[in-house]
Design a protein around this nucleic acid. Structure first.
Length: 426
RNA sequence: GUGGGCGUAGCUCAGUUGGUUAGAGCGCUAGGUUGUGGUCCUGGAGGCCGCGGGUUCGAGUCCCGUCGUCCACCCCA
């Protein structure tokens, strides 16, 4: 980076240049194609939302809401400077709440009754300390299916995710699965857990003491050896699921088994967002650093009602594109050479050549033309570096004629401008 | 928010116990080849050694601060 630059990019934000940007494009187009096969249509929601949407939707006790929100004050609020006023809008930290908001706001349940399937692709923002696999602006691809409480929907959504990830040829992924219960069975379990932990509080680390009253389920996430040891013998949700949740979970597992999906049941898995119910899952990669979650999701049967909509069961997932790109096998660029023709000499009449090139571009040929050409030797070198299929000289003597050289074979032929599409076109 | 590592050319990095004009490879550029690339050879351009302060006759090198970046914690995609 240029030193002492006055206008550097904001911390945690990244610029993506041409060769790398095509990786995003490929990932996106594959996702669009595959998700369309599962009946998902794209939904685009704003990047800016009211903070209260996430405070209510994601949950007051979550880190996303407590410390990771990117607040955007309006002009008045910024000048006013009072904290409460400045905290009204945020850049979205995730998209599920936005999708649900849009669903409710536009009364999609009435307009289009039945099960609705959406996918989204776009940037999310979280105000965290950047590190490997963690940007302040990152890109998620996600799916939300609204209107079905059936285990088959859980299975379908999970299969969709597995299908996408394995189609990318990703290795060393672990699929973790858990059931976290519902408002009917979870309170009882949490009390049981608190009783268990409460009796052994002295063995817990400092962080876990805080977790105990804020959200005791989180103690399962602790990486301290002592806490882990303690939690290994703690009561697990599965034993306290209500009859409905237990039946649901069993049905989902059965379907996944029959689909041949390989997963690990993990009683410790507790998504860090308040809205999850019943099925939750996470995909991790051992090829990443500490930030090893590649994708995650789960059922959120109460969120729609919670945000003021009609009771509507739902389930979804999202994955981090940057993290996927980091572990994607480096396959050679199959997008082809970026230029069909590279003009190494414009001939006697550069302006005439300029318009000839324009005409060919309109016919779909990809042509490189320097407006400030250097020596032919230098231009040949550049044509080679840029991966042009043909080098072209405009003839000086005859303005209708050109000479082209096949960069791979070295073969060189003379022909008219009008013959180029036929000879060069693929 | 907490802890640690690192900031020297566009990129990857050397830089002796502090000592005079700060180096290499790659890349860029010109030429060897008087319009012809990939190999090879020769030349050239390109550095407030992140920034500020301090110690010293003298600092890229030592000390303090600061900013940036990376990694880890927390948490998550």
């Amino acid at each position: 980076m240029r030193k002492n630059y006055t206008y550097p990019a904001v911390k945690g934000m990244r610029d993506v240049f041409p060769p790398e940007a095509s990786l995003y494009q490929r990932l996106e187009s594959r996702a669009r194609k595959l998700l369309a096969c599962y009946g998902c249509g794209e939904i685009r929601t704003p990047l800016l939302e009211h903070a209260r949407l996430f405070e209510r939707g994601v949950g007051q006790g979550t880190d996303i809401v407590n410390k990771e929100m990117f607040f955007v004050p309006s002009k008045d609020q910024a000048e006013d400077g009072r904290k409460e006023n400045a905290r009204q809008m945020v850049l979205r930290p995730e998209a599920t709440a936005s999708v649900v908001r849009a669903y409710i706001e536009h009364e999609m349940d009435k307009i289009s009754p039945g099960v609705l399937r959406y996918y989204y692709i776009g940037p999310m923002f979280r105000y965290e300390r950047p590190q490997r696999g963690r940007l302040r602006q990152f890109t998620q691809i996600g799916v939300e299916v609204l209107g079905s409480a059936l285990p088959m929907t859980d299975a379908e959504v999970i299969i969709m995710l597995e299908d996408f990830l394995s189609s990318l040829g990703l290795q060393r992924l672990t699929f973790l699965l858990n059931a976290v219960g519902c408002p009917r069975c979870r309170p009882g379990y949490i009390r049981k857990l608190q009783v268990y932990i409460g009796g052994r509080q002295s063995q817990l680390c400092g962080d876990c003491h805080l977790r105990l009253d804020k959200n005791p389920l989180r103690v399962f996430d602790c990486k301290q050896p002592l806490c882990r040891e303690l939690m290994a013998r703690a009561p697990v949700v599965q034993d306290d699921l209500c009859a409905d949740c237990a039946a649901h979970h069993a049905a989902v597992l059965n379907l996944l088994d029959r689909a041949g999906i390989k997963y690990q049941r993990d009683a410790r898995l507790m998504r860090g967002l308040d809205y999850y119910t019943r099925t939750v899952f996470e995909v991790t990669s051992s090829d990443l650093g500490a930030q090893n979650a590649v994708a995650a999701g789960g059922r959120y049967d109460n969120l729609v009602a919670e945000l003021g909509g009609p009771p509507t069961p739902a389930i979804g997932w999202s994955l981090g594109m940057e993290r996927i790109l980091e572990i994607l096998p480096r396959e050679p660029d199959k997008s082809g050479k970026p230029f069909d023709i590279y003009v190494v000499s414009p001939g006697g009449d550069a302006i005439r050549t300029f318009f000839k090139v324009m005409a060919l571009r309109r016919q779909g040929l990809r042509i490189g033309l320097e407006h400030e050409p250097r020596s032919v030797k230098a231009m040949m070198k550049r044509a080679d570096r840029l991966g042009a299929r043909w080098a072209l000289w405009a003839a000086s003597e005859n303005p209708e004629k050109v000479e082209i050289k096949n960069m791979a074979t070295g073969e060189q032929i003379s022909l008219g401008w009008d013959d180029l599409p036929r000879v060069v076109g693929k």
